[in-house]
Nucleic acid binder design. Structure first.
Lengths: 328, 328
DNA sequence: GTGAAAGCGCTAACAA
DNA sequence: TTGTTAGCGCTTTCAC
């Protein structure tokens, strides 16, 4: 910085002002400074700047799984909002593991981000609450009752009911559920499934298959189910990825979807919308959810508004993988 | 830090040592310090630490597109390698735009990362070379001849030939190519396509359709093609995403794949492998590529080995979307 | 617009 | 094993 100041024939303070785009600088000195900076290859050190300025203007965004396009959409919504608000976003991948998520959060905290958005987070509520005591936290896709954490979700229990009732209306009775395991949102979806089955008088047909939010898990659940001799006429999978894996395995075993088995997923990712897949699913407004999460965080940061809970409506999207039952 | 030192009854220097996991600390003082730290909610400031230590032990990873699962696999390979080498990874999304990529790189540089890995990068070669002059850069999925940038790629021209020859061997002659536009690797794939067509004596049937590395672009290319009255019997798409988009559009218009038109993609992403999609494609060893890129970077960082160019072999994966031409 | 001075929170010798 | 002393590269404040 000193070198640049000397090369440009100005004071160090002026260099600092130019580098921060201060309006209180004459056009002439701005040009001189910028010119000297490029000539010397000078680039302000972010760490030094943030350390001295005592603020980073940065939020941390923790994505649960880079492989799931759902998170890509959420990230898009957040990036746009951040751009509009002049915030930087730093990304981290949780790699579907609470341990990795925890480390990523530690890095965010150590980097003194102004706020954190977690998506599909698997961390224990206690940990997330502790983090929220240090810095504003908004969680997308996972509810946190009574805590400091802001949330943006759809009502997963309602969504699950939508799915089950849709299958029921098509004549299905033996409806199995492929569980999301420890994935965010899988508990309420499972609960919604169980409740809907009960409400429809199908308690005896209730069948929860262990699973996860991946294609592999969906395929494995079907394989296990078939091996066990259990043959439902319909499957409600905890997310699109596992639904697609399930369909894959069903077809591999010569079963037609929806001819023999109807399948419905959850999330309405771009994958589901592909004509070729045509997965019936429960839509969550991803971009809006991302945008809402970012907006809530920035409002908390800039206008010190409180974080709160936003719930959006899930809705049913019927495509090709669910159909009237052939022979009830 | 002072507070912790006082609370633990030790010096500030000792606190620093404990926080950095130095072995030269007695068990007793370690416990005392750690205890005081948790009690006071103390957490070392990364910026201050890195500033003082003059090194960040961090690499920046720029992902071209969060929506494309190809990058998720690359990132997995890099994350594993980084974990093994004790490096931190900070992520950024280029959102398929050179401008966003450029900004992300600026942030990396300002944060003084030790090295950068770019994937599917769209930045001009000149810019990337300039960056490489400041810090080691490895590019995955895009070649850079004669520059400071290390590269890990498959030979895209060879891969394209593989695709075209496969279609040719099935009896196809009218083979169109959906271009990758400004996407990394699209130029050599296009060149490989054109060359292969020439080699096979099919110069007249050469047809390049404007495209991009997205599903939308693949669908649009097909729509445009059909509107123009052009009907190839086979399509070689620049990547899996656009191939899937193309298939989608073909089916929407009542054309069967591969009954009426064969389609082959490029990348062999998880999507292509889905039984239900069964996309024939050209495989790139994604995890290995990510691992190799990270290994090269760490070797340059730790043992000051030179960056170089690694080329891996692409290979043909035949699945369900390509078949012998029905009526040649 | 300038220059000086005082940190931001930490690490890195070096000495004790 | 512990304490001391300089910075790391920047922002901020304030008087000029």
């Amino acid at each position: 910085m000193d070198d640049v100041a000397i090369a440009a024939g100005v004071s160090r303070a002026l260099v600092s002002l130019v580098m921060r785009d201060s309006p209180r600088v004459s056009a002439a000195s701005r040009v001189a400074v910028l010119d000297a900076a490029t000539r010397l290859g000078y680039r302000p050190n972010l760490m030094a700047r943030n350390l001295a300025a005592r603020c980073t203007n940065t939020i941390g965004l923790l994505l649960n799984d880079l492989h799931n396009p759902w998170y890509a959409d959420i990230a898009d919504g957040i990036h746009s909002a951040a751009d509009a608000n002049g915030y930087q976003v730093i990304l981290a991948s949780g790699r579907r593991s609470a341990a990795f998520e925890s480390r990523a959060i530690d890095t965010f905290l150590a980097s003194r981000v102004d706020g954190i958005i977690v998506t599909g987070c698997r961390l224990p509520a206690r940990r997330l609450t502790a983090v929220a005591a240090e810095v504003p936290v908004v969680s997308v896709g996972r509810t946190m009752r009574a805590s400091l954490v802001g949330t943006v979700c759809t009502d997963d229990a309602v969504g699950a009911r939508l799915a089950v009732r849709h299958l029921h209306s098509l004549g299905h009775r033996r409806i199995a559920h492929i569980d999301g395991g420890v994935g965010a949102g899988s508990a309420p979806r499972r609960a919604g499934y169980v409740a809907a089955m009960r409400e429809l008088g199908l308690t005896d047909a209730t069948r929860v298959l262990a699973g996860d939010f991946t294609e592999q898990a969906g395929a494995a659940a079907v394989a296990h189910m078939l091996r066990g001799g259990h043959a439902p006429t319909a499957i409600f999978a905890a997310n699109d990825l596992s639904a697609i894996g399930a369909i894959d395995e069903l077809e591999r075993r010569g079963l037609d979807v929806p001819g023999n088995v109807s399948v419905i997923g959850y999330d309405n990712t771009a994958l589901a919308a592909l004509n070729h897949i045509g997965l019936s699913t429960i839509d969550q407004p991803r971009l809006s959810m991302g945008g809402a999460a970012a907006a809530m965080l920035f409002a908390a940061l800039n206008e010190s508004l409180d974080l709160h809970n936003v719930s959006m409506a899930p809705h049913l999207v019927v495509r090709a993988t669910t159909a009237t039952i052939a022979a009830p």
